[in-house]
Nucleic acid binder design. Structure first.
Lengths: 333, 333
DNA sequence: TTGTACGCGTTATCAA
DNA sequence: TTGATAACGCGTACAA
């Protein structure tokens, strides 16, 4: 079943059928009804390959999500679905592997789907420098700053990772902790981890202390890796009264490792996570964490994108304030 | 950049370029190198719209995933990526809303992408009865039985939800519990919930007891809903010594509600979940649960699909044994 | 081994 | 308001 069949069965021509299906103005009510009657009866849907191939300009908004298992991004996607359901822009949501280039992928999809704009959920400076020049449509990098990249069509919205981490660490220092362990991502590959690392260093400096590298343990963003890394740290004889994990999932894994040592959280070791995942509030103790401003980031990034698309505003860059969620996993000493 | 440009720049014709790009045999090494040189230099990728539009038969396998936030399915997808990375079949992974029809969506994508086969992660009998007849390619319904549907090209792989639930409930009954609360999905809409409900009834019967409807509380599959539902149950004066939740997320929410009442798990109330999510092992107490055989389900469903595709085997239906993971959230009384 | 020409299902342009 | 027709980018017979 193609629009050709529709044309034959409805008695109208290809052109008219296409216009009906796309809600174009210059169609008689009679023609519209005739075509729609057949559509209802047969359950026809346009072939999006042919549509995209021919269309010079689509009407959708593309969201490229980096990493499938990322709960934070999953929540963001939900927000976007909510936000854009109130507009006329269909969403194309594309998930790519952590290791693939989001910009290259966006380039391919821009050619194929011709979206009005692109939202990047996660991304690396490196990839943008390399290939973003090929992308012409308004875009927003979410969860990272593009201010220094200098692309005219790339806005950005992020929480201040450096300050957020600093805030978490200061919370621990302020509570009297001096022996800290920090668990986070690979500093050579993750912009985010690097920013948060810098925040740690800064917080220490502000307290007149030195953040020593041996306090930093590299791990992947998963429960299991958090568990293994913390376990290894403790096995290596690391001593601490507090742990800052750069992700809640890492923190949750670390807590298990701590408990397996016969230690308690927060009585023996305090723990602060990062992200503010829903699960954190269902643990005991509830996880203290740096809560990502998910809703605000989604709102602002969507707004920025729409301003670029609809009102041709120039790219701009925003930093959303985070908030420290003080729950029950930190103890004063 | 299209293959037309490639043809011009490489000095070969459209046909030759297309043959190179698709790895066809009748191409000289010289032509291949000339074309690939330009491809490398410019970073060309085929336009999949045009490709799919033209191709009468693709080489991919389609996975339709019902529900974005579903951790269980997320783990399954990872398994599939692993399994199929060792084959020559590219994966097309499509996420749809819980409320949309997976079969209708698969129909559209079959017309557009022409995959060799379809894997349904989640699905409702109703939708298959309604529209599956339009789908001609080998398919497998995962997480639900299609035995009674009688389609020649639809296999199925599922865990025995009825037995699984019965096993969980019997575990509680065997541990001496008699006052049970059961939290699960909407019985009028979810095949899975209904099967598990029947398992509960059966387990009670085997113990010479009656499973009374007031013990069943309908809730959504989320931490929050589990929490709210359990809280409401307790507020309504429901008394119990054990809870069976039809999903780990519900169980985790319920546990919080229990604790907020000043009760302990498992000392005052035992809890059994369902699914065997990774997080369950990082809680305290570790969550006792009916573990879904994720790996086996992925392996068998992939095998069944490939047998249909490659060796034209008829559809068949398998039930994978589940296992009860006895952790720390159940107490004998 | 290579090149040419046609068609996939749709939108867009133009003339009627 | 409608209809005919030319693309869109690609794969593939078929001819060379």
């Amino acid at each position: 079943m193609t629009i050709k069949d529709l044309a034959r069965e409805s008695g109208y021509s290809l052109g008219t059928v296409s216009r009906v299906l796309n809600g174009h103005p210059n169609v008689s009510e009679k023609a519209r009804r005739a075509v729609m009657a057949v559509v209802e009866a047969q359950g026809f849907e346009l072939n999006s390959n042919a549509k995209n191939l021919k269309q010079s300009q689509g009407d959708s908004i593309l969201i490229v999500v980096k990493g499938r298992g990322n709960e934070l991004f999953a929540s963001m996607v939900e927000q976007y679905q909510d936000i854009f359901s109130r507009t006329a822009y269909p969403l194309i949501i594309d998930y790519i592997d952590e290791l693939d280039s989001e910009v290259r992928r966006a380039g391919v999809l821009c050619r194929e789907k011709k979206p009005l704009g692109v939202l990047f959920l996660g991304g690396t400076h490196h990839n943008f420098l390399e290939e973003f020049s090929k992308i012409q449509v308004p875009s927003v990098l979410v969860t990272g700053s593009a201010r220094n990249l200098g692309f005219g069509n790339l806005s950005s919205v992020c929480a201040d990772d450096c300050k957020g981490a600093a805030c978490a660490v200061e919370h621990l220092l302020h509570s009297g902790h001096r022996q800290l362990l920090v668990l986070g991502g690979d500093l050579t590959r993750s912009d985010t981890s690097r920013n948060r690392y810098n925040g740690c260093v800064e917080a220490f400096r502000r307290y007149g202390l030195d953040f020593k590298d041996p306090c930093y343990y590299t791990c992947r963003y998963s429960y299991q890796s958090g568990y293994e890394t913390m376990k290894r740290a403790l096995d290596d004889g690391a001593t601490c009264t507090a742990v800052f994990a750069m992700a809640d999932v890492i923190a949750i894994g670390a807590i298990r490792a701590i408990r397996e040592r016969g230690l308690r959280v927060p009585e023996d070791i305090s723990v602060v996570g990062y992200d503010g995942l829903a699960i954190g509030d269902f643990l005991q103790p509830r996880l203290s964490t740096v809560a990502q401003p998910i809703e605000a980031m989604a709102q602002r990034s969507a707004a920025l994108l729409l301003e670029q698309i609809e009102r041709h505003m120039p790219a701009s860059h925003e930093t959303i304030p985070f908030s420290l969620a003080r729950k029950e996993s930190v103890r004063e000493i």
